[in-house]
């Protein structure tokens, strides 16, 4: 019995502590990213939020998605955002001007109500126990088989979409001579 509980401690204690540490990181940095008036600070705070989400994906048993999250979001999209801040920076006017006070209060009340409704809806149904039979083994192998099998059309469409998107973006930002 004692051996069993020791094993279980080794199994879930660290994961649960990790969950709460990641939650602390994600909620604080997400709040700064969403509400900071300094846009550079918001972008850098988004870095920690995305990193924490990669941690969630590790806890949920998908190593490949966690690494993809770090590569695509932190390495790509976040750099693109900071690049955008750099290119659209202008010293003359402040980057962020505050909204009118009644609108801010109204939006905040609406958002708190929305969060409450979503949390209530999430909690009103009984939580399923995690399926212990499922063991995450090598999701990259499974995903590779799926992408070249039943999901091959989505794979090809994503390739076409990215090609069109990149050509379109390069076309849009060219300066008219």
């Amino acid at each position: 019995m004692e051996q069993d509980s020791l094993m279980l401690y080794q199994t879930y204690g660290g994961a649960n502590i990790s969950f709460w540490l990641i939650t602390l990181l994600v909620l604080i940095s997400g709040g700064i990213a969403a509400l900071s008036t300094n846009i550079v600070r918001a972008a850098f705070s988004l870095f920690f939020t995305l990193f924490g989400l990669a941690g969630y994906f590790v806890l949920l048993g998908s190593d490949f998605i966690a690494v993809t999250q770090i590569i695509v979001y932190v390495g790509g999209i976040l750099v693109l955002l900071i690049f955008g801040v750099l290119l659209t920076n202008k010293q003359k006017q402040p980057l962020e001007s505050p909204r009118s006070w009644p609108l801010f209060v109204f939006a905040t009340v609406c958002l708190i109500a929305l969060t409450a409704v979503m949390v209530y809806c999430a909690c009103v149904f009984p939580s399923p126990a995690i399926n212990q039979n499922y063991v995450a083994i090598n999701t990259a192998y499974t995903l590779g088989r799926m992408l070249s099998g039943s999901y091959v059309i989505i794979f090809e469409l994503a390739a076409v979409f990215l090609l069109l998107g990149l050509i379109g973006a390069a076309f849009l930002v060219r300066r008219a001579d």
């Binding site: 649960n16 994600v26 509400l35 949920l60 801010f104 905040t108 979503m118 909690c123």
Partner: peptide, 30 residues
């Protein structure tokens, strides 16, 4: 997840996702 015998439940993840979504919506609106 305040126990060592079971992992954190589904609702905890859903609540975190709901709060994150509302933060994003606040950022879009404000």
């Amino acid at each position: 997840g305040f126990t060592t015998t079971a992992p954190v439940g589904l609702h905890s993840y859903l609540v975190v996702a709901a709060i994150l979504f509302s933060m994003g919506l606040a950022s879009c609106l404000l």
